[in-house]
Structure formats: structure tokens, C-alpha cells
Design a protein around this nucleic acid. Structure first.
Lengths: 349, 349
DNA sequence: TTGAAAGCGTTACCAG
DNA sequence: CTGGTAACGCTTTCAA
């Protein structure tokens, strides 16, 4: 039986408040008495105030939650997610908070429940898909602060992110500038249950994931500007945001519905996978990525850089000490086109 | 003002227990009543039972803590730590638990406090240094279960790990087999405040970190077996367990106290750093690592593989559903010597 | 500087 | 199946 604060109080012969003060407000009692209490506590094996009870009473937990749409183990496997988490961890650490990593079940009800059960002071919503609405709703009804990082939210909510569409457009323009006209766009789960490979997407609005939607739209913008419209673009869907899934999605490049000269991926990991497949097939198409993860540079991947660590850090800061000025509640981070060698000029046809 | 369970009860005209049951024990009331309660709750904006209050009452949190000795952001940066976390996350996820990542301040008192304040059901102690004693002590006095992963603990404690010494010895024997006799051992913080580079270590017992101590001992075993004793080995200390720190520790290879033909690192990241420096200096020494992280294969690093993901997974499992048989509370994982190209035969002198 | 009283929001037990 | 009562372990006024 663990001793409680009460037991210590009785043993020392003081009131519970005094013992509590000995731990939490040393200035409220004499050094000598405090010493006596702490000593007695140690002797009795009292481990200090129970964190749960303390949280309940104080209304403050000392931890922030990070919500992952995909499997939790993903968090440590995906390079961009890792960058983001590093940033969050930096800010949390400085603030003295812990990080609660919350895996979200795929079903909306389960996700809601996960949010409702997390003992935290606020949430970083990392990359929600279409279920983000449900999640945000659950957080809001708990009355906790949160920061989102994908599609731009309501004006009153906190957000840190990039201009997805413009960023995507910038790589795509690089490709149109190089003469590419027949291209494939590669993204994770373009449509809900798509098999790996080409899919028909009648309308961009059908794409569930907002970030993917924005990036595809950005790509499309650039091609539209040179007279290539949406229906002429090949869309490749991966089953996952991972290198193998990217490789699988490209499949047999020669059997694609349309001949292409370039692949524009919505993430570096996908682009890397595409490169794997193409190298295997000995095809030399132009490939571009998105994010600029560490693995991109060594293989010369042309991509758009977004500051992942900073994104995480600023998200956590927004949560932990929000700027008084509400105008500063939404932070737009810069992106840069990083031109390397993976995307050369289109072959003259 | 967030509504509470009590408010819902009053609104519906039932007792608090009934509302509570509606959430936590659906079988305790009629479907119809439950529906009415849940509907009313939704309407009032009641987000469901407060997680903190629930934890206090139930005596169960639904989260396990992972304790990091080094900076928290390390967790996502260090490849081996990442593997470990992935494993922990897998197990936690399956069990429906969240992961609380707890950064430990460098000072013992702070670390103790961090442990005492974490609202969790148990701890995975990842890689404690010499302060592990203090930490384990704090956990124990809270009466929570824990699993450690470094030096083998008391018989009654849970542990998952490898035979550090034998594993280290196996790489070292590979090197002695190749004829190496004058070598340097490279490790993270061999002595408490060592500057990067060579240090004198009179006695292995002076090395604070138990894992490092074991690995160095294993290396030494192999060399002792061929007549090279401890005092003839050069010890290189890094300031950190990272690639740059490894690079810095090797410093100017030609200015080392003794000429060497090989560097045995206690971690792949350090070995990688050493390789960076040596390549820079155009020196072609043999280099070996430890862990077999993903980056090891591409550069042909000879190393010892330990199953990182599995280590994390089994640690978490040991915590989440401990085997009834206490004999199974300590799990020894296998290691394998992985011979690649980074360590060739010693030059004939 | 100390202590008494009043919760924080739940859930468990047990009687009805 | 329902509801009253008593905690869970602590912190925080507020008055002494």
C-alpha cells in the first residue's frame, strides 16, 4: 500500500495542506518544517504528489498531445513526420511539457474516443485527412486548444503550415519550363480505396485528403497554364505514404494509360519509390518530390523544401504560449524550390 | 463553462452513476435510456468523462512512459532510438495505449521529478546512463512497473536487452582475426566531461554509462586474448551519440597518441562520423560500428546487429501484459556480426 | 506560518 | 436495471 500525502501529514502531525505546500510551494513554510516533512516522506516511501490527482485538482496536465492520423509507428518511420516531431519535442522540452503520442484509429468514432480520452492540455493535429473535421470537433468540444497543420482552418483557429498549392505549382512550373507536358502526378490514397497505380479522378474535389488535394491542384495549375488540362494528366495513387508504396504505384511504367516524361510526387518518400521502380525498369523519367527530407539530397531529388522541424516547433509554441495578438495565430511558413538532378529537360519528341 | 457528467445527469433526470454507466458500461442500462443520455449529452456539448478524473478514480491511465536520458528531440533523430520507439509504439498501439515521451533533465533531482510527475501506468527506461539508478529508484517508489534495456538489472526486474559484452567482443574478434592490434575504441562520453578525442581511462569502472562500459569491456576482451592489453588501446570520447560527434572525436587521426589501424565504435552513428573524418583526411583505416542501423548497409559498415524494433516491442509487451511466469521477465535478444567492407585486414607492418 | 473545509469530475459498491 | 454514498489524492482559498 503506497502511502498518501494524508498519511505523511498524519505521521508528521501537520495538516495535509502543509505537506502539499512542502512540495509545491516551498515559500509557504519554514525551511525546517519542510525538511522534516520531506524527510519523513522519504522514509515512508511516499513518492510525492500523485500526478493524476494533482492534474485533476489543478486542471493542468503538463503534456501536449500529438495526433497521428496514420499508425503511430509511422511517426518514427516517416522522415517528414520525424522532423515535425523533433520540432514539437524541442518546444515541449523547453516548456517542460511531455509529449503524448496518440494513435488515431481509422474509424471516426474510434478517433473521437481517442481524442476524448487523452489527458493533455492541448493538441497538435499532425496532418489530418478528411476525418480532421471530426477530430477537431472532438477537441473543440473538450474545450482544449489545438493547432492544425494541413488545410487552412477557420480564422479563429491556430495553424501553422505552408501554401501547399503555390509550393506544388512551383515544382510543376519548373517541369513545364523544362518542356514536360505529358506527366503523372503521384500521391498517397488519391481516392479512398484506390489500388496502387493509375486512377481516374473526375474532379479534384473527390480527393479526400486536403493536403493532397491542394498539391495536386497546384500541379494542375502549372500545367493548365501551358494548355495541359486536368483530364490529360495521369494520376497515380499509392496505398501509403512510403517508399515501397511509391514504387508500387508507378508499377510498370510502360503500361500506363498515357506515355509520360515525368512523375510529380506529393512527397519525397513517394518520389524515392518512383525512382526505385524507374531505375529498375531502366527508364529515365524526370521525377520530383515534396518536403526535401534528408534522403532527397544524396540522390539528387528535385523537390520543394518545407521547414519540417520549424513547423513542429512553431506549432507547439502556438499551443504552449500563444501570442497575445490573435492575428499571429496562423503562421505561414516559406517553401523553396530545390533544383537538383532528378528532373532534366523533356526529351524532344 | 464545460458541462460535467453531473449536469447531464440532472438534465436527464437520472443519477450520476447512470450517466457514467452510459459511457463506460453500456450493459448496465437499457439501450433506450442510454440513447437518451448520450443524446442529451451531445446536445449539451458534454465531451464525455474527463480523462484525468477518470484516471484518478480508476487508478489507470492508459499510457506508458518512455524515459529518455538524452534530449527528447534525440528520440526522433537517433536512428537506433527511432527503431526502439517504433517497436514500443507498435505494442502500445495494439494494446490501445498512448505513449508519453518524457524528457529527463540532466540533473538527478530534475530527472526524479520528471518521473514522479508523469501520468502513466508504467515506464520503458530507454538507455539510462549512470543516473539510471536514481530513475529506477523513483519509479520503484511510485510502485509502477518498468522495463529497462541497458545493463542487466536485479533478478526480479523486467529487462530486455542483448549481451553487450559478447556482442562487442564478436566484432573485435573479427578485427583481431584480420590482424589489427593497434586500435582505437570510440564511444559517447567515456568519462563524464571529456573533451572530444583521446582520453585516458585507467579503469573501465570509471566509465559511467553501463552499456558503454560493457561494450568497451567486450572489445578489450578480444584484444586481451591476443595479448594486447587495456593500456595499449586508444580510447576516443565523443561528446554525443551522433555522427558529427563521432567525426569530431576522431579529430586529426595522425595526431593520436598511438598509431592505429582500426577504429571500433560503440555505435553506428559514431562509426559513420569516424568514416567521415577519415575519408576527409584520406586515411584508410578499418572502422566498425554497433547496432546496424539502416545507414550502415549503404556505406558497407561492418557492425553488430541488434534487433531495435523488436527490443522496443518486447519491452512494451513486458510492461503491458507481463508473462505470468516470472522467469520470462528478462529477455535476451540475439545479435549478429554483420561483415561488410569497412574493415579490411590490417596493413602488414 | 499553519490548518480546516470545500471541492476537482469521476467511478465502485451495494442496496433497492 | 437504477441511484445513493463514498471515495480517488490532491490543492486552494480563507481565516486563525
Amino acid at each position: 500500500m503506497k502511502p498518501t500525502l494524508r498519511a505523511v501529514a498524519e505521521a508528521v502531525g501537520v495538516s495535509r495542506s502543509t505537506v502539499s505546500n512542502a512540495y509545491s510551494r516551498p515559500d509557504q513554510l519554514s525551511t525546517e518544517l519542510r525538511r522534516r516533512i520531506l524527510d519523513a516522506a522519504r522514509e515512508m516511501g511516499y513518492p510525492g504528489p500523485d500526478p493524476t490527482a494533482r492534474s485533476l485538482r489543478r486542471g493542468y496536465v503538463g503534456a501536449i498531445g500529438v495526433l497521428f492520423t496514420s499508425r503511430l509507428s509511422y511517426a518514427f518511420t516517416d522522415p517528414f513526420a520525424t522532423q515535425f516531431l523533433t520540432g514539437v519535442a524541442q518546444a515541449a522540452e523547453r516548456h517542460g511539457s511531455s509529449l503524448l503520442l496518440v494513435p488515431l484509429p481509422a474509424d471516426a468514432a474510434g478517433a473521437r474516443k481517442a481524442v476524448e480520452n487523452a489527458a493533455v492540455d492541448g493538441f497538435c493535429v499532425y496532418c489530418g485527412g478528411d476525418e480532421e473535421g471530426e477530430i477537431v470537433d472532438a477537441i473543440r468540444s473538450r474545450g482544449l486548444p489545438f493547432v492544425t497543420t494541413s488545410a487552412r482552418p477557420r480564422a479563429e483557429d491556430r495553424w501553422v503550415g505552408i501554401d501547399e498549392r503555390a509550393a506544388a505549382r512551383s515544382v510543376a512550373e519548373h517541369l513545364t519550363g523544362l518542356g514536360h507536358r505529358r506527366v503523372a502526378l503521384l500521391a498517397d490514397r488519391v481516392l479512398p480505396d484506390a489500388a496502387p497505380g493509375p486512377v481516374r479522378v473526375g474532379d479534384l474535389a473527390d480527393v479526400p485528403h486536403p493536403t493532397t488535394r491542394e498539391r495536386l491542384a497546384g500541379f494542375a495549375d502549372a500545367f493548365a497554364a501551358v494548355g495541359v488540362d486536368w483530364s490529360q494528366l495521369t494520376i497515380l495513387s499509392a496505398t501509403d505514404n512510403s517508399r515501397p508504396a511509391g514504387a508500387a504505384a508507378v508499377g510498370a511504367p510502360d503500361s500506363l494509360p498515357e506515355p509520360i516524361t515525368a512523375v510529380l510526387a506529393c512527397a519525397d518518400v513517394l518520389a524515392l519509390g518512383a525512382l526505385d521502380t524507374l531505375r529498375e525498369a531502366d527508364r529515365h523519367l524526370a521525377v520530383t518530390g515534396f518536403d526535401d527530407i534528408a534522403e532527397a539530397a544524396p540522390v539528387g531529388l528535385t523537390t520543394v523544401r518545407q521547414p519540417g522541424v520549424q513547423k513542429g516547433r512553431r506549432a507547439a509554441e502556438l499551443l504552449l504560449d500563444p501570442p497575445v495578438d490573435t492575428d499571429a495565430h496562423q503562421i505561414l511558413l516559406p517553401t523553396t524550390l530545390v533544383v537538383r538532378t532528378s528532373a532534366g529537360p523533356a526529351p524532344r519528341s
